[in-house]
Design a binder for these strands. Structure first.
Lengths: 214, 214
DNA sequence: CCTACCGATCGGTAGG
DNA sequence: CCTACCGATCGGTAGG
């Protein structure tokens, strides 16, 4: 098969051409901006981070981020969207790895453990930014993120409802979900990996606290 | 007894003269500034609130807040200090009202209920500002607030330890405290008094979730 | 992507 | 407390 024939073997790619080297480069630079923004937004907050800070952290000059993003707020939205998309994928993966026969308590434990990874593990700036910089989004952006967040949290409800029915969760599942996410999300404020607790410890303690079974 | 004799009957007030009308006025205006700042800091965040906003909300012109406070950051510190001082007093009062014979579960319930009042009740802007604008303090200010916060949270430990010993709290008390404050503090993000839950409902659900006893 | 720039806003101050 | 102001910084843009 000659190289010249290759294009013909991909008839379905109309309107979505294979990325050229420049396009790949551009999307890489864009991703660098998003990662730098996530780190700075988490460390200093959205308002206290200037677009010049972000440009500098990505090795660019002050005006260049606006070649990739329309506004500072669009950058914030990209951080949150990328973060939620990745978190949703890895959460689904964690549930699949558990298998369909796992009990409700094991499922909740896996969801908690995975959530700590997303909040406190390596490359974990995206979701804390989403949690703590919500206010700086426009209403339209907020809707988009809320939909992704709702989907992420909805995956917890079957386990919570089952535990409630079994008497192991002693609060209304919908309220329990809000309290539990509060408890977990707050760890972003105090947890340090240089402290005595591993993420496994944290997950074990949390599961014990909420479900009252050792 | 003549009016002239009155000063002699108060020999202990050296260096702390009774407040004049102007001094009372000044301290009132100062308190108005702090309350306006608390409201705006909570609604828009510290960085997104200008000193002009605060001045306007207190009925002053742009430069006037700096007659009462050295800097914007000093205003933030005042919000947090006033809030913590008040919260500490009312928490101690809530515990006293409960009496010394109350069980650990009742004590935890009262602490939770009181904390919701502080977070979500009327005039409840001060503590949420402390929780969510921590980052904008100078390190020295942070130490001062941390001390007040530690004292407030330390009052929870006897109840948590007792419940842990009795088997009703299935996490290490120190870790449980962090998770519990996370769950409670997060309500500032989602609770609405126009929703179906009262603060009493909230406290009941939380106590059930953490201690696993109806 | 860089360079050079603009208009707006901000915290804070002097002088009364 | 007000008036009038300053220097600094910021998000964003034009033009290449």
């Amino acid at each position: 098969m000659s190289l010249a024939a290759a294009p013909l073997s991909l008839p379905a790619r109309r309107g979505r051409p294979r990325k050229s080297a420049e396009e790949r480069d551009e999307s890489l630079r864009r991703a660098e901006l998003v990662r730098a923004a996530a780190r700075l937004f988490r460390a200093k907050g959205f308002d206290a981070t200037s677009t010049r800070d972000i440009a500098g952290a990505a090795g660019m000059h002050s005006g260049s981020p606006f070649y990739y993003f329309d506004s500072k707020s669009a950058l914030l939205y990209a951080v949150m969207c990328d973060g939620m998309a990745q978190a949703g994928r890895s959460q689904a993966q964690a549930l699949r790895a558990l298998g369909p026969r796992a009990g409700a308590r094991a499922r909740l434990g896996a969801l908690i453990r995975h959530h700590f990874e997303v909040l406190l593990g390596p490359d974990s700036d995206f979701i804390p930014v989403m949690l703590y910089e919500w206010r700086s989004l426009t209403p339209a952006q907020r809707e988009g993120i809320a939909a992704q967040k709702d989907a992420y949290e909805a995956a917890w409800m079957p386990a919570l409802k089952a535990l409630h029915r079994a008497g192991a969760l002693r609060a209304q599942p919908a309220v329990a979900r809000l309290f539990i996410f509060g408890a977990l999300n707050w760890t972003a404020q105090w947890y340090s990996e240089r402290g005595p607790l591993t993420l496994d410890d944290l997950a074990r303690q949390a599961l014990g606290l909420f479900t009252g079974e050792a």
